[in-house]
Design a protein around this nucleic acid. Structure first.
Length: 183
DNA sequence: TGCACGATGAAC
DNA sequence: TTCATCGTGCAC
């Protein structure tokens, strides 16, 4: 499978979020290859986006968001779950795309319908924070050219506190796909 | 040094 | 609708 180049991530964040639909998240670790098709994403645009972690400026937790594109930003949420993001746009921008759901393709034995379940299914934890998706065993592969998904949009999940930013349609999913998270 | 609160998921 | 569970960021 052909890996997405860094230039893919170095673009406007909402475009990256949309174009990630239909691509494949691939994890190769301890001899196991796990593949899921990305069917749901959310764009977090930068410090001006009040729903984004970067809206409070660069901190110890979110420093990877401000680094170069094409790296994984993994954080713990609610004291018990991990979420996986991919950093977008130029270094210092503070933007990323949250991967929310996968359609299992190979080597996946548990649910992937939601950002924390996705991480659990692929064994992703904070060890992978800052990991370069362009050079290692965790990466994203191009979608099949003849399988361009029909895209649906809506408000992002769980960011009600963000005022008008909570209402922006920055969540993208493959229309009708049963593996899109239900919330 | 203390404390309020999550980009969630599962149970009730 | 409630709760588990704890790292982070900021107030004091």
């Amino acid at each position: 499978m052909k890996r997405l180049p860094r230039s893919f991530y170095d673009r406007e964040t909402a475009l990256v979020a949309r174009d990630l639909l239909g691509t494949y998240l691939v994890s190769v670790s301890d001899g196991k290859k796990r593949i899921g098709r990305i069917v749901e994403t959310e764009a977090y645009l930068g410090p001006h986006d009040l729903a984004s972690h970067s809206s409070k400026g660069m901190t110890e937790r979110n420093r990877v968001m401000f680094g170069p594109p094409g790296h994984a930003y993994v954080y713990m949420i609610y004291g018990m779950h991990f979420c996986l993001n991919v950093v977008t746009e130029g270094e210092g921008h503070g933007s990323a795309v949250l991967l929310r759901a996968l359609e299992p393709v190979r080597g996946i034995e548990s649910r992937t319908q939601g950002p924390a379940l996705l991480c659990r299914a692929l064994g992703i934890d904070r060890c992978l924070n800052g990991y370069d998706l362009v050079s290692g065993g965790l990466y994203i592969a191009v979608r099949d050219e003849d399988a361009r998904p029909v895209v649906a949009r809506g408000p992002r999940i769980g960011v009600q506190y963000a005022g008008r930013w909570a209402r922006r349609h920055l969540r993208f999913c493959v229309r009708g796909n049963p593996f899109v998270s239900g919330r």
